[in-house]
């Protein structure tokens, strides 16, 4: 698997990363290097082996359905939430108008 300049440009645009022509040129071999390095894993025959989802045996924990059970991960903290907002408008985030 390898990428060309066009694919890199598309990935950059999907990720909303602005890149000039020179940057795109530089990224192509860099990314291809990474890809070929990772592709070495393809040499290992893992047919019949279950995909591993965690390095230690573990299962997904479920949470109790309780509001603001942990103050750090609950709501009711609008000032904190809006603290970094570039524009704070009547309790809303203000963003450049997005409408088609």
């Amino acid at each position: 698997m390898s990428v060309d300049k066009q694919i890199v440009a598309k990935i950059a645009s999907l990720a909303r990363i602005q890149m000039g022509d020179a940057e795109l040129e530089r990224m192509v071999p860099e990314l291809n290097n990474i890809l070929s390095w990772v592709e070495q894993l393809g040499e290992v025959d893992c047919s019949g082996v279950e995909p591993m989802t965690a390095v230690i045996p573990n299962t997904l924990r479920l949470r109790e359905d309780a509001v603001n059970a942990d103050p750090l991960t609950g709501g009711d903290r609008r000032d904190d939430i809006l603290a970094n907002a570039p524009a704070r408008e009547h309790g809303f985030f203000g963003v450049p108008k997005v409408i088609e």
Binding site: R63, D65, A66, V67, N68, A69, D70, L72, T73, G74, G75, D76, R77, R78, D80, I81, L82, H90, G91, F92, F93
Partner: peptide, 22 residues
């Protein structure tokens, strides 16, 4: 009562951004 991945409330009609967790 609470959201899918956080414990903020799901109640309808609250003040804007009052029910938002980190």
């Amino acid at each position: 009562q609470s959201k899918l991945f956080s414990s903020a409330s799901t109640e309808f009609g609250a003040e804007p951004n009052a029910q938002v967790s980190l």
